[in-house]
Amino acid sequence: MEAVRGGIKPGHLVVSGVFGGICAGAALFSIIMVPIPGIPGGSGFWIPAGLYFALTLWFGFWGALAGHIGTFIGMGPFFGFTFQVWADGALGDFFAPLINLAIFRATRADPELKTKRDMGIWLISVIISTCLAAMWIHFVNYSFGTITFDLWKWGVIAYTIGDTLAVWIIGTLLLRSATKYIKTFPYYVKGLFS
């Protein structure tokens, strides 16, 4: 394997591409199964959220990028590949797992979630990052005129609850069952990029 500047390998790019496709497929299923009337590309149970939160803890920036690209590709066929869809869902889904990763790195928590401390950090960090993403996403929707400012706070609360549940259910299962194996994978990321 050829190691290049900063330790980033072609495999890291492939991780983003392949898992981006998986997140896109999962987004399509989410929108079809549990749509939210009125929110462009929205779903009441965002399956890719659980996926890219776990991916970001395993593959750092490349996992978040997979979520970002996957969300945009997944939402596009239903609500258009518009600037709004990119700026709200896709960009929000890029920052949320990175915030979660930053909390994990700052507290030196282990994504295997073996101890109560790690589990507590995971549960709280998901709420914080999802809430921040919800604020951003609804701010974009407000800026594009899709919702009013009065509806903003209700949107933030609903989104935070829905997305947090999806991440807790799916993400926790993935982290507890697969992290031990993924730590042996050559493209497991210990920092942000490599």
Binding site: L13, V14, S16, G17, V18, F19, G20, G21, I22, A24, G25, A26, L28, F29, L65, A66, I69, G70, I73, G74
Partner: peptide
């Protein structure tokens, strides 16, 4: 690299749906 990731993600979506 960004173009590569984007193209790979597009192609991987249909493969994922088959695997699913």
């Amino acid at each position: 690299s960004l173009a590569f990731i984007f193209t790979l993600a597009f192609r991987s979506t249909s493969i994922f749906i088959d695997d699913f």
